[in-house]
Amino acid sequence: MTAPAPSSALAPAAALEAVPPRRSPTARFLRRAGRNPSFMIGATVLAIIVAMALFAPLITAYDPYDQDIARRLIPPVWHAKGSWEHWLGTDKLGRDYFARLVYGARISLLIGIATVVVSGLIGTALGVAGGYFGGRVDMAIGYVVNVRLALPVVLIALAAAALVGSSLETVILVLGLLLWDRFAVVARSATMQVAHADYIAAARAIGCSTRRIVLSEVMPNILNPLIVVATLEMAHAILLEAALSFLGLGVQPPLPSWGLMIAEGKQFMFFSAWVIAIPGVALASLVLAINLLGDGLRDVTAPENRS
């Protein structure tokens, strides 16, 4: 790797240093992103999965809930007994596997995005408050983060889902209330870095309210690392939803969750390994794409932090 040019997304002065080819921040971002293979692969695979989720009815003619008991567990097309009619086969109730996979992408993406919205709000609010005010506030918030880290996530999520009643909404809420720790840690350290910058002091000197300083001076300058955390936590949430659904306390049947598809296929996996292989590969691809995108974003938005 060549040494990255010293520039900083955090300090506004950096934009002035890079004068020669004057480009808009968006153009610079796109140029850097285009040269980052991790970002490009992640973005491409993710775009394909998002498109599948959005245009599900156009991609498959089958309904993911339509059962056909006469056509149970038809293998995919690359098997001797497979056919193009159900090219990824059918499940134990004769439902088209490709249709369930495509509609299942909606569930994974919904869980990922909704969880990150909830946890991102909680974590960012706590982290910014700790980093900006410091002192006792910071100590109290650090304490809350420590308590959260000590709680075993899977166990708490399972117990809460069992008591409230497991459903899509429960999973989102429970995961959203649990996965904010990394947002808080990153928001805190990023806020501490900018809290003593001159432009914050200037904003304070001209009498801006704390709310205004936080929203229009601090937030834009700590957004980049938070977006990277958001991608990682999105992947984390998707994996956890799959695990919860697999254990029977996440998304409930007949919804086509990928984790649930693996759980339902488990009893048939000894004779038809594809039943768990297909949703497993889908899940791994989605998580891999999001992680690659996150890694790429980190390099693109903050090249000076590259190891």
Binding site: A235, L239, M269, F270, I276, A284, V287, L288, N291
Partner: peptide, 18 residues
């Protein structure tokens, strides 16, 4: 590292069993 982290635990377990 990147690939490994994307694989769900329970699926890895089932695959190992198979």
């Amino acid at each position: 590292c990147v690939l490994g982290q994307a694989i769900p635990t329970f699926w890895l377990g089932l695959t190992l069993i198979l």
